[in-house]
Design a protein around this nucleic acid. Structure first.
Length: 770
DNA sequence: AAGGGCGCACTTTTGA
DNA sequence: TCAAAAGTGCGC
């Protein structure tokens, strides 16, 4: 019989002594299915240094060393466009692929390719769509431990069948309450205090242990079992909750059989926890990609997405939680916290899941992986499929030494306020240049290579040469992305249904993000297709293009106020701006008016400005207002100053605002929270060579038993006293308002932030003091 | 374990 | 006292 299924997850296993891939999905009857497939054996390619026959002989004559080689055959593939005959080395065991792919070149010389794990191999070879529909001829079987509605064996090679609307997904959200006796909770010492679960069927419950937490762990397992979710979601679960749950289970000698094959969660490829047959989604991964959210937490994420429940979330620090826990009468608050956290995670997942689903469908990474993977690996996965389609050998990941290269051009702005300014920019400049000039690893001409000058593009400044024909790997990949985006846009225009149109919008966004990441990818030393010359050439062509555009604007009599990378700020004279955009007249390199400011303010600095939009809102770029490492009090003062000078054109109003804040600060009338400075720990505390405030505070917290790790944001305030700044930085929860060094905030936060703007208006610093 | 690129502003510490 | 280095976070 034929099974049409929406592919949610993949796992690897063994079926009748053979390695198999399991495809976990949902069918059209909304039943959970799993298909066991054994058609593809694990393999990789070997391009030996010398002739193929002797390589085959050496492998076959050395069975002791290579016992897991099942067979070897010759195959034609391409290496950067050039035909090569390679050996396909089929292994009996999936894990042998990476071992032999490393070992054989050491023994025989040459290189190996396509070092993919079996499930990736399977997806790639069969062109299946993750988070999309696929088809397969199947027959029912029975496998012990598998809990899906239907269990099948694949009788044909499954095929991708497009990526239409997703089925109705069951989502389970959870949150744990972790409180230590002192400092951060430690699994060896502190049981899980409570666990809240919310499901997309409307159920919500809080589990609290009576004596120890084994019962809680058991109940959680049962809750997952009963509801049988497709997606398990929470906030920061990969870094915290899952580790804790697993450790507690281990201590209690229990198994957290959460998988659809009764297996336990395990750490997978990108440091996330993988659960067989389900997608474990950590919303922190979603937050990490959103630059507007400075302090990444669930409340800020929910607020960003406009989920109503955001208002009911309480952000607490560990020590505040410890305080509430210590007082028996306030424990209820903490239970409410995690209940809201679970409910909000659920609502957020429902609101925001379309984008990750589309990203998965486009890149071919399963949902849980695509969430956890960084941009580079998403691009990598996309390119891998294109390469395979083209018959290209897939280079293995290796850390190459890298060279930096010159990047984009930034022009000094004309400082001051400018009226009526148009901002023009090139749409997707770098990928467009890569496509237009066929910049690619396989079209790059070697330094000594003789070619006719007509057949190549010579890149200005850097002197690299790229063949105009045939189409290079990146051109093919980018074209297919750009076409996909155009197709999605067209479909979007004809879709009336709001649900479908949301899916399409997210698809378009996902395609765009992958497209724009290709330039950075090409210049990333960890990329499979890392070729510095490609990125370097795109940057050089970008500099040439923007330089010409600036010159043209000036020739047309437009005043050029500023330019950065792919944008120019010019006087907004409709006719001339039109002439400028027409001048480009290249369908592959479109420049368009992106924004129009009534007024825009520049200081002397690049990458920092504020513009007044026609609707009265402000765009604030680069200035303290948008920086997460300045106190709220300084940021809001600066924002008010900007609004006063740009919108109301009143420096008087601006100065009064500053006065008012300084007065309130000195009056202790500004909440302590507004004085917090957040800084990220960018390395382990022992690696700091300089005594920075955040490192000092982090050391202190660590000494008190709090877990502080790389990537954490440290919140501190500056208190009165003697000595360097780092000696006066304290964790804000230890500080009472009267200890605050108000003068520091006046002199080093509020004044600089305000003066940055006001000095261009002839305001002297003395006018701000009191 | 580490998880596109380079260009730039700015604060604080360091070390002579 | 001052310039350089370290550190962070931004823009595109």
């Amino acid at each position: 019989m034929k099974c049409r299924f929406w592919l949610l997850d993949l796992s690897e296993g063994v079926w009748e002594q053979r390695p198999c891939v399991r495809l976990w999905g949902i069918d059209e009857q909304n039943q959970r299915v799993v298909i066991t497939a054994t058609q593809i054996q694990p393999y990789f390619y070997l391009l030996p240094a010398d002739d193929l026959d002797s390589a085959v002989k050496r492998i076959e004559s050395d069975r002791e060393r290579f016992p897991n080689v099942a067979n070897i055959s010759m195959e034609k593939r391409k290496l950067l466009g050039k035909e090569k005959t390679v050996l396909r080395v089929v292994c009996t065991q999936p894990h042998s692929v990476s071992i032999y792919a490393k070992l054989l070149p050491e023994v025989l010389g040459g290189r190996s390719f396509d070092d993919l794990k079996l499930s990736t191999r399977y997806l790639t070879d069969l062109k299946l769509t993750t988070c999309g529909w696929n088809e397969c001829e199947v027959e029912s079987i029975s496998i012990e431990g598998i809990t899906t509605d239907q269990t099948y064996l694949a009788k044909s090679l499954p095929t991708g069948a497009g990526s239409n609307a997703p089925p109705r997904l069951r989502i389970l959200a959870f949150a744990v309450l972790l409180v230590g006796q002192r400092g951060s909770a430690t699994p060896q010492r502190d049981p899980i205090r409570a666990l809240a679960v919310a499901t997309s069927s409307g159920g919500i419950s809080v589990l609290t242990p009576s004596s120890d937490d084994s019962e809680l762990l058991f109940s959680f397992t049962r809750a997952v079992d009963d509801f049988d979710p497709d997606i398990i979601v929470g906030y920061d679960t990969n870094k915290s909750a899952w580790h804790y749950l697993m450790q507690r289970a281990k201590i209690k000698k229990m198994k957290l059989t959460l998988g659809r094959d009764e297996s336990e969660p395990h750490i997978s490829l990108f440091g996330h926890f993988s659960i067989a047959g389900r997608a474990n989604v950590d919303l922190a991964d979603l937050a990490s990609g959103i630059v507007e959210i400075k302090v990444k937490d669930l409340k800020n994420l929910a607020t960003h997405f406009g989920v109503p429940i955001a208002d009911r979330l309480t952000t607490r620090d560990d020590w505040e939680r410890l305080g509430l826990w210590s007082d028996f009468s306030s424990r209820q608050k903490l239970l409410e916290d995690i209940t809201m956290e679970a409910q909000a995670s659920l609502e957020l997942a429902q609101e925001a899941i379309n984008y990750p689903l589309q990203l998965s469908a486009i890149t071919g990474l399963p949902l849980d992986q695509v969430m956890a993977a960084a941009v580079g690996f998403r691009v990598d996965s996309y390119l891998l499929r294109i390469a395979h389609r083209l018959g290209e050998l897939i280079p293995n990941k290796n850390e190459l030494p890298f060279l930096t290269y010159r990047g984009a051009l930034v022009q000094e702005p004309k400082a001051g306020v400018h009226q009526n300014v148009a901002v023009l920019d090139f749409a997707s400049m770098y990928p467009s240049l890569m496509k237009k000039y066929n910049l690619s690893p396989d079209t790059l001409v070697g330094p000594g290579e003789e070619v006719s000058p007509d057949s190549v593009t010579l890149i200005p400044e850097v002197g690299h040469r790229f063949r105009k024909e045939p189409d290079g790997f990146y051109r093919i990949a980018l074209s297919s992305l750009i076409e996909e985006r155009a197709r999605t846009k067209r479909e979007l225009a004809s879709v009336a249904d709001e649900g479908t149109s949301r899916v399409m919008r997210e698809r378009e966004r996902a395609v765009k993000v992958i497209t724009n990441a290709c330039y950075g990818y090409a210049g990333w030393a960890g990329a499979r297709w890392y070729v510095r010359e490609v990125a370097e050439s795109a940057a050089a062509l970008g500099r040439q293009l923007i330089t010409e555009t600036i010159a043209k604007a000036m020739a047309l009599g437009l005043e050029v106020i500023y330019s950065d990378t792919d944008s120019v700020f010019v006087s907004n004279i409709t006719q001339k701006v039109r002439e400028l955009t027409d001048w480009v007249k290249d369908p592959e390199m479109e420049i368009r008016v992106e924004r129009e400011y009534q007024r825009v303010l520049f200081t002397e600095a690049m990458k920092r400005y504020a513009g007044l939009n026609p609707d009265g809102t402000l765009d604030i770029v680069g200035l303290e207002v948008v920086r997460g490492d300045w106190s709220d009090v300084a940021r809001s003062v600066q924002e008010n100053v900007l609004r006063a000078v740009l919108k109301h054109e009143s420096t008087k109003m601006a100065i009064e605002g500053v006065h008012e804040t300084v007065r309130r600060l000195r009056n202790h009338d500004v909440p302590l929270k507004s004085c917090i400075i957040w800084k990220t720990l960018t390395k382990p505390i022992e690696k700091y060579r300089v005594r920075t405030p955040q490192a000092e505070v982090a050391r202190k917290l660590a000494a008190e038993g709090w877990h502080v790790t790389v990537g954490d944001k440290v919140a501190y305030v500056i208190v009165k006293g003697r000595g360097a700044l780092f000696q006066r930085a304290k964790p804000y929860h230890e500080v009472s308002p009267e200890d605050l060094d108000v003068e520091y905030y006046v002199e080093n936060q509020v004044k600089p932030a305000a003066m940055r703007i006001l000095e261009g208006f002839g305001v002297a610093e003395a006018q701000l003091g009191v």
